[in-house]
């Protein structure tokens, strides 16, 4: 029976574990987070150490002393790479937290309240959706001080539209379900229903969405940094790429200055995408889609049907 699949969030983890792609994504993301957290212990050098450089230290190729060579300032690329994970993931997590919070709040309100509120909120979302994010982000970051906080805010404040639409659709479909009607019949008010019946069924979708938005935020941060709009005080992967491109890594043939940050970005984005898709599949389809409205779609009122079994046969084949 199909209903067997529902029930609690525990089932989601059980089904995710059986999804190889999802588990690979999860492992990759955990690795990235581990690297970011353990950067001080994994790094061979102190990233902030003031070092004396000679022309010979610049763009050194990989060697036992510098496994991934050195960059344009003669610093160790491996160290930069490991610390860069911290910046990229920080931006990814905080920006997506902001984006999903805003999108979730708007989507839940619009979907649940309906009517005028919904019209206004969704019109606003549509406007935000058609404005291209990146050029706007470039303009805003260029006009404000390019600090890490500003980048997080800009990415978060511009990246919620997709979440808002998704959450609204899910909220509307949960709202239609009969157990919400039953809660109303019992006497529950809007706040109780939202908190107890709607939100718990929308939350899984928001989790999936967060994971996907993290990868978008990391990509956006890399793009902004690559365009020279990153925080000059921190070295994210995007910033590493930016310096490599603008400071002659290409002409020096220093591939080691380009590949690690590029690899890091691809790694995290791929991890989030795989995990997000795995979670999506692991979430019960019955949580995500409206159960067939048996009352109006399955029974036709065009028939006179006093036969006792005419409606009774449904439980078996639903």
């Amino acid at each position: 029976m199909m209903e067997q699949a529902t029930g609690g969030y525990r089932g989601v983890w059980r089904r995710l574990r059986r999804n190889p792609m999802g588990m690979i994504g999860l492992a990759m993301l955990v690795t990235a987070i581990g690297v970011a957290l353990l950067a001080p212990w994994l790094s061979p050098y102190d990233p902030n150490a003031i070092i004396r450089v000679t022309i010979l230290d610049i763009y050194q190729s990989p060697s036992p002393a510098h496994w991934l060579g050195t960059d344009d300032a003669g610093r160790d690329v491996l160290t930069n790479f490991l610390y860069g994970a911290r910046v990229s993931l920080t931006v990814g997590f905080f920006a997506s937290f902001i984006a999903v919070s805003i999108g979730g709040l708007l989507g839940l309100s619009a979907g649940f309240l309906g009517g005028r509120t919904e019209g206004v909120l969704m019109r606003f979302t549509d406007i935000m959706l058609v404005i291209p994010d990146l050029p706007l982000a470039v303009v805003i970051v260029a006009l404000t001080k390019p600090s890490l906080t500003n980048i997080i805010l800009v990415i978060g404040l511009l990246g919620w539209t997709g979440t808002a639409r998704l959450v609204r659709a899910q909220t509307m479909s949960v709202k239609q379900r009969k157990f919400v009607l039953r809660a109303r019949a019992v006497g529950a008010g809007n706040r109780y229903i939202m908190h107890r019946h709607i939100f718990p069924l929308v939350l899984p979708l928001m989790v999936v969405n967060t994971v996907l938005v993290i990868s978008l935020a990391i990509l956006n941060e890399s793009t902004l940094s690559f365009l020279g709009l990153g925080d000059p005080a921190t070295l994210s992967w995007g910033q590493m790429l930016n310096y490599a491109f603008t400071r002659g890594a290409m002409s020096a043939g220093a591939w080691w200055a380009l590949i690690p940050p590029g690899f890091g970005i691809v790694w995290v984005v791929l991890a989030c995408t795989l995990l997000g898709q795995g979670l999506e599949q692991a979430l019960n389809p019955r949580l995500l889609t409206h159960h067939l409205a048996a009352d109006r779609t399955l029974t036709s009122h065009r028939r006179l049907q006093p036969a006792p079994t005419s409606e009774g046969a449904t439980p078996g084949n639903r």
């Binding site: 009607l181 006497g187 069924l201």
Partner: peptide, 18 residues
């Protein structure tokens, strides 16, 4: 609604799965 209660037709849909 404290004194009037309702039972719905579809017991598969009228209980919150969570």
């Amino acid at each position: 609604r404290r004194h009037i209660q309702m039972i719905f037709q579809d017991p598969y849909e009228s209980l919150n799965p969570l």
